[in-house]
Nucleic acid binder design. Structure first.
Lengths: 234, 234
DNA sequence: GCCATATTTCGGTTCTAGCCGAAATATAAT
DNA sequence: ATTATATTTCGGCTAGAACCGAAATATGGC
């Protein structure tokens, strides 16, 4: 027996775009730092901190302090279930409503999940890497093959710092928008960072997705065989 | 694949106390008029109308026009499922948090569901009526026995107008806060109305529950064997 | 100890959603 | 036709939430 107030409070917490982004990011990749979620939400760190405080206080997410990081995850399996339920309902109720397609299509096309690429592009890149053998999946472990190492070096993605980091080198996050997997972990983050530095992609101020520049489109085409959607015209 | 925006929009709609009241009222009793839901939400009719417009536009509730009434119900079974999910989660996350107990305990003790009594008191009255044989349940049909008719006449509840109304004379609504049943339908509404007129109960301006007066406590004790909680001291 | 990184707290601004009351509309009852 | 009831639209008010930037705190690495 739950009170109306506590019920609406929960829904209220989920019902803010920034927090929704955080929660769904957590549903994919367990263990995200505050900084990851800040990026996912597309707000200032201070704002994200406020959101996370509210979410943790309500018990929707739980936090474990590790070093100077705070890693968040969903508070309980029931939270994940609830998110799934809302997602399912949203899919039924808003069957590709045209009004929000413009803005949101771009978001889904190359959205970001924490500090790495997700959405259509994120999944396509990952599939390309797997298909070409640059990444090999054996059971639960992932390996970057020699050819893959070459590829990332060629793209100027710095790999050496990643070996010293406590973070997992690679991981596959389930992508809720594509129902497939995208590349996460340190490598996923480093790759996106390189994309931004080299102006292959641009993150609109505080958004949870990136726009792909013409330069980026040619990179994606050449290295991954991907025809990226046009967001910034040539 | 639902967009973050449409997801947070749904949660946002649920996340307002007035709308939450409406939705959970609809989960109990299908077919509630706008006026019923206005009462349930505890806001002005104009405000309720705005809420209902938003809910229908989003597809969370559906509406069927019958005469000069508009009857609402939940938009789909999935909406009901979602509400259940939130309710369940709220029960786990807010295990009797003391901060909101004061205000809310009163609300749950004698809350109203549309135009009839619900909550602890509503359920207790209904159980008393069933136990004493004033109401008989045979399969899906409900009958008011002769003794029951006498009882309500004694309490000055006007029964004759109810026979002319198109509304169902009696119904049992599932009470989400007590996990039991309370009396709805025309009789449920008429009884509450009598309680308010005779000052056995008072509805705080625009709230979705009633306070029980000392006079009302004695009525409940005498007729139903119920010890109502004290909200208004003698 | 000292610097860099991660995160929170604080102060102040802006914007939106909820609220009401009054008036308008629609439909039923007389 | 007129009156009563049910519901919506409109205008204006107010409170609260989200947001940011700057400064404060905590922690790890050196």
């Amino acid at each position: 027996m739950a009170s109306i107030l506590s019920i609406s409070e929960i829904a209220f917490l989920i019902g803010d775009p920034a927090r929704t982004n955080m929660l769904f990011c957590l549903q994919n990749s367990d263990m995200a730092s505050a900084a990851d979620l800040t990026r996912a939400a597309g707000v200032a760190p201070s704002t994200a901190s406020e959101h996370l405080a509210k979410l943790t206080q309500a018990g929707l997410v739980s936090v474990s302090k590790m070093g100077r990081h705070r890693y968040f995850s969903l508070g309980s399996p029931q939270v994940a279930e609830l998110l799934e339920g809302i997602d399912a309902l949203a899919g039924k109720l808003a069957p590709d409503g045209p009004p929000e397609m413009r803005h949101d299509q771009a978001a889904l096309h190359a959205r970001t999940c924490g500090d790495h690429l997700a959405g259509h592009i994120g999944v396509a890149i990952t599939q390309s890497l797997l298909a070409s053998g640059h990444i090999r999946q054996r059971g639960k472990t992932l390996n970057l093959s020699h050819s893959g190492r070459m590829l990332f070096q060629e793209l100027d993605v710095p790999l050496s710092p990643l070996n010293q980091s406590p973070r997992r080198f690679m991981s596959l996050c389930h992508d809720w928008s594509e129902d497939a997997f995208h590349l996460g972990g340190g490598l996923g983050g480093a790759f996106l960072e390189t994309c931004l530095i080299r102006d292959w992609m641009r993150r609109p101020k505080g958004r949870a997705y990136v726009d792909i520049t013409p330069k980026g489109r040619s990179i994606l085409r050449k290295n991954f065989g991907i025809e990226a959607g046009t967001t910034i015209p040539d």
